[in-house]
């Protein structure tokens, strides 16, 4: 069977169609986030207070769906996995960037993607957040010459978990699936415990 995917690198569609596809995927992604309740800052920040694990569950679901999909489609010869773009790892800048993004997430109640979803669904706080994001991008752009050395530091190239841990891709898929299942079970257990405790508090009142 001739490998078809990924479509754009294999010339199944050109530049113009790729922009249309990106727009459609963007709409689909935004719609899914909104339907999952991720246009609400309260829902999102409840994750950080361990009251609602929807964010963790949705994100983990996305990860394992993409991972198993890529793995098995590649296994069946329907996708050329080596043509799928994987970003490089810049350890220290990405650790620091992750911490800054996390702090912004907790303080502002949104991450960049969900803030756009919230703006579209009419949330005023998200408008403020998005203005802050835009301002931050502007400041970063202006300061980039000063930050460039750090930005490009600790370049590890493209790193895959299975290479890093010295296992096969399949074993890593299994390990991540076990981790995801464990996380789902633990999150469900915690949410049930929390609901039971709330019910008891309500009864006492």
């Amino acid at each position: 069977m001739e490998i078809m995917a990924p479509f754009f690198p294999n010339g199944v569609f050109g530049d113009d169609m790729s922009l249309v596809m990106a727009l459609l995927i963007g709409f689909g992604f935004g719609f899914s986030l909104e339907r999952a309740g991720f246009g609400s800052a309260k829902k999102l920040t409840d994750q950080f207070y361990f009251k609602d694990f929807a964010v963790l569950k949705v994100m983990f679901t996305a990860i394992i769906t993409a991972m198993t999909g890529l793995f098995f489609l590649s296994w069946m010869g329907m996708i050329n996995y080596s043509q799928v773009f994987v970003g490089k790892t810049f350890m220290m800048p990405q650790v620091l960037g992750g911490l800054i993004l996390g702090m912004g997430f907790v303080i502002g109640g949104y991450c960049p993607g969900t803030s756009v979803v919230a703006v579209v669904s009419g949330k005023y706080d998200a408008v403020t957040f998005l203005l802050g994001v835009t301002f931050g991008i502007f400041v970063f752009g202006q300061a980039f010459p000063m930050l460039e050395d750090f930005y490009n530091s600790t370049d590890m190239g493209v790193v895959y978990l299975y290479d890093f841990f010295g296992t096969s891709f399949g074993v890593m898929v299994f390990a991540v699936l076990v981790m995801a299942v464990g996380m789902f079970v633990a999150a469900e257990w915690w949410e049930r415990k929390l609901a039971k405790r709330s019910a008891e508090v309500q009864d006492e009142k």
Partner: peptide, 23 residues
């Protein structure tokens, strides 16, 4: 769903490295 995930994981272990040939 858990059973399905574990089944896929076990199949993946035996499938090994499908992308290596492409690499």
């Amino acid at each position: 769903l858990i059973a399905l995930a574990m089944l896929l994981g076990i199949i993946a272990v035996f499938a090994g490295n499908p992308q290596l040939a492409k690499k």
